[in-house]
């Protein structure tokens, strides 16, 4: 009993310590704003994190949009409301599935790569040698990745939603025969830029920050061994996926006035 309590206390202290270290890493790095001289680093990271995630994001967006249209049609047609198909799919994509699924894909595809890369740099003393050259790895390695995540993630989420809506229109309008005018006009009437699209973007920005933060921290904090890097990479995917889902709940709670 006592030892269980002590373990719990120890665990909480450890957790707080990790959070503290992660927080200070983020804080220190985020203020090292990419200077103009570092723009190439940022561009390279947007390429690594963003551009290389486009294919998987677009493919997933398309198939999820198509599936939503199929399932949604099946239900709506029972009530003769299939003209609301476009509206339903668009709302769900823009507010929830776009940011969340794109965030999960981003965690798996880009987050794990960032952790592995930084972890390996640490294990092979590249970070140490950079420090010894008087170059701050927070500025050269960490900051560009954080900012790239911040920029790339909303773009990926927007692409996901757009491709998803396109996929649903292909299935709904071109295949299942929902009247095209109704499909789009119901969507345009029901989806509001400020209260739906913009809030979805806010979500994706938060997810981008959190996923890259976790990824960078796990890489930076890893034990410099191959097992250490493997474990850190797994942790990045697990933690950031869970973080995306939990944060989504709270962001929805706050932004959509419950």
């Amino acid at each position: 009993m006592l030892s269980a309590l002590r373990n719990l206390g120890q665990f909480s202290l450890d957790l707080l310590e990790v959070l503290g270290r992660a927080g200070s890493l983020w804080w220190q790095a985020i203020w090292r704003r990419p200077r103009l001289a570092n723009a190439p680093l940022l561009i390279r990271q947007i390429y690594q994190l963003g551009v290389l995630s486009v294919v998987i994001t677009v493919l997933s967006g398309f198939s999820i949009g198509a599936v939503l249209a199929l399932q949604g049609y099946n239900q709506l047609v029972k009530y003769g409301s299939e003209s609301a198909l476009g509206l339903g799919v668009a709302l769900v994509l823009v507010m929830e599935i776009g940011p969340v699924v794109a965030g999960l894909l981003f965690a798996g595809r880009a987050g794990s790569a960032v952790t592995a890369e930084i972890g390996l740099m640490k294990a092979t003393e590249q970070l140490s040698s950079m420090e010894m050259m008087g170059v701050d790895p927070l500025q050269r390695i960490v900051a560009p990745r954080l900012w790239a995540g911040f920029i790339a993630m909303p773009i990926l989420a927007l692409m996901f939603s757009v491709v998803g809506i396109w996929g649903s229109s292909l299935v709904g309008v071109d295949w299942l025969g929902v009247y095209e005018g109704a499909f789009w006009s119901a969507m345009q009437d029901g989806v509001d830029f400020k209260s739906h699209v913009l809030k979805g973007i806010v979500k994706s920005v938060v997810f981008g920050l959190v996923v890259t933060w976790i990824a960078v921290f796990q890489g930076y904090d890893t034990a410099p061994t191959s097992e250490g890097i493997a474990a850190a990479t797994t942790r990045t995917v697990v933690y950031s996926s869970v973080a995306v889902l939990i944060l989504d709940f709270f962001l929805t709670l706050v932004m959509f006035n419950f």
Partner: peptide, 15 residues
């Protein structure tokens, strides 16, 4: 970091 600019270090692993 300022002080380190005037130091050089050859790492054991090369790095």
């Amino acid at each position: 970091f300022e002080v380190r600019k005037s130091m050089g270090m050859l790492f054991q692993s090369g790095a």
